[in-house]
Design a protein around this nucleic acid. Structure first.
Lengths: 344, 344
DNA sequence: GTTAGCACTCGACAAAATAGAGTGCTAACA
DNA sequence: TGTTAGCACTCTATTTTGTCGAGTGCTAAC
């Protein structure tokens, strides 16, 4: 049995219908599409074939049919036509991205909000990984006895700080001196290379402080990696709009899974190797997302991927809209951030 | 009609029962308490009285009775006996508060998690307000053209940063000079006084830069106020366990309200004027929380309140447990933070 | 290959029946 | 006077039953 043009057309009609209605699609509904001009009986035969081929599923005899994950996969790979964003949608995004484009934290937060507002699904955004940033300033600030705060500033204007231990014999003015030397030495180095470089540079005037310097670098590296708490999440409750989640228990499982950001962080981390990715239903590793689809995109500056963001929705999500939105966002995020880093 | 000892006892029994079961309490259930040794008929009479007095409500004729907000108020004010935390509870808290007590952000996050895990309600934690902190270091780091990053470090080891505009005619080495002067001038000043002080100090060598300095101070002040995004939230989905929220729409409203942290922030801000506060049901300003109770506590160092945290649960929450947990947490947070600020 | 017709299946929904928890009231009792 | 047993009544939740309609698969005819 072949998947001929007509079957394909019928399948597409079923998927489109199901994405709209969330309820099983019957043969009569499809036979009404005048482009086919076929009776419901014929459609039924075709649907039986499609089911046999694994593209459709029946919740029970005498319900309509529901697209399978395999069908969605075919749909996004071959059948779906991309829609440009409507003016309204762009307006919604703009409305959320208005102010304070200076601070990256708030850009990430606003991006997440814009994404969830415009798609009505759940949005997640990972902040930029700073590996490709270049160092601009290191400052060691003495605190109470034996403690200091390391502050690192990168070219793009990111600051990170961490509390570290300081050996008793290092005095305030020496911390100042070390700050100056480190800043000078590593000025304009990529953040992910400082670790290596410092072991080479450890000779010279800083030699006797190498243990201390290692702890500084260790703290820097720890703080430069974006971690799960920093994943911005927005619109998790949007899922409650959809009949898929009218069951409180399903909703609970979903919400609990996204509330601890770890899962999201892992997914985004993995996704940051690809420009776009779409995983549908069972393609998702995690049990909780077996009836979700997750679409992600990666934003970058030049060739350097900085981070990923994405949308989680029911498998019957509006893929074409979601993809358009993500493409749009990917572009504007990348632009926004390369404006910051024009020296890259 | 009076609220005599027996009525009080019966009311307490009803409340305790209802807190456990969440379903209307009938006269028979109470008459089984051997401490009263009364028939259900007598209890019924008493319950009718309690209803007339406004302490009980009937969902409909021939259901049992449910305590009113007024009853809960009486309960927390006079009837409830405080329970010490059990070993298990303390163990749960400890388990969540393990590592990395150095970084305040993660202390706040872990506190929220511990609170929600041990109470099974929703927890919120506001990070410390830095008003009473003292300045330790200001650093202006030049970024691309016309922009710099201000970094401020306080005695307690908090760092804040903000991107500011820099007039074209200020060169890198002047930024360095200004950093040094500002650090020197305001060393050990309370953060909330820098704004005032700077207008006095504006004479002298910094006079010609006063417009710029104002923008620096403005940025500092903006960043020092903890704002709603920084409120840590944990266990919002716990509410879905409770029959009060088995209705998806109620759940949705609740979750949407807490997801945007603004409301929580406002509540915590207000609460930070009191050591503890309990608001029950209708005592809450916001419509969404009319059937919740909110218990908050304020942590402090010395006499200076730093921030608040709290628990949101259904009105029939386990008040005595929640209060004990908050007391415990208030103490340990305060201790933890004063260890950091022994110079306060 | 397409379609009309038909018997059949199954879930959704509504109406009806039933059970059970709880109440208020009255009258009797200590 | 306070307490209690008894009883009729109310109301909800649950189960049962019946009905409707959407949808299917199969067959026979076009």
């Amino acid at each position: 049995m072949e998947l001929d043009a007509r079957k394909l057309g019928i399948l597409k009609a079923i998927i489109d219908e199901y994405i709209m209605s969330a309820s099983p699609v019957g043969s009569r509904a499809i036979s009404k599409h005048e482009e086919f001009n076929l009776s419901s009986a014929t459609i039924r035969n075709e649907m039986a074939d499609l089911e046999e081929l694994g593209y459709l599923e029946q919740p029970h005899t005498s319900a309509g049919r529901v697209p399978s994950d395999k069908a969605y996969r075919l749909y996004v790979d071959q059948m779906m036509q991309k829609a440009a964003l409507s003016d309204d949608e762009i307006k919604i995004i703009r409305a959320h991205m208005s102010s304070k484009l200076d601070e990256v934290e708030s850009v990430m937060k606003q991006t997440a909000q814009a994404l969830s507002a415009v798609t009505n699904y759940t949005a997640m955004v990972m902040p930029p990984m700073l590996a490709a940033n270049r160092l601009r300033h290191i400052q060691l600030v003495p605190l109470r006895e034996g403690r200091a705060l390391v502050v690192i500033v990168t070219t793009a204007g990111f600051a990170r700080d961490a509390i570290i231990r300081v050996p008793e014999d290092i005095r305030t003015d020496e911390l100042e001196r070390i700050s100056r030397i480190l800043t000078e030495r590593f000025y304009d180095c990529r953040m992910d290379q400082i670790g290596e470089l410092i072991s080479h540079e450890m000779s010279g005037e800083l030699y006797e402080r190498r243990a201390f310097l290692c702890s500084v670098v260790e703290a820097i590296e720890r703080k430069m990696a974006p971690d799960s708490p920093n994943v911005q999440l927005s619109g998790a409750t949007n899922m409650l709009h959809y009949p898929e989640y009218s069951d409180v228990n399903k909703a609970k499982t979903f919400l609990a899974a996204v509330e601890g950001r770890n899962l999201l962080y892992d997914m985004l981390k993995r996704a940051s190797k690809l420009e776009f990715s779409i995983t549908i239903g069972n393609e998702n590793q995690d049990e909780t997302f077996k009836d979700c689809s997750i679409v992600t995109a990666t934003y970058q500056v030049g060739d350097e991927p900085l981070g990923s963001f994405g949308i989680i929705g029911p498998t019957r999500m509006n893929y074409s809209k979601v993809i358009s939105v993500l493409e749009y966002m990917r572009r504007s995020l990348s632009e926004m951030l390369s404006a910051d880093q024009d020296d890259e």
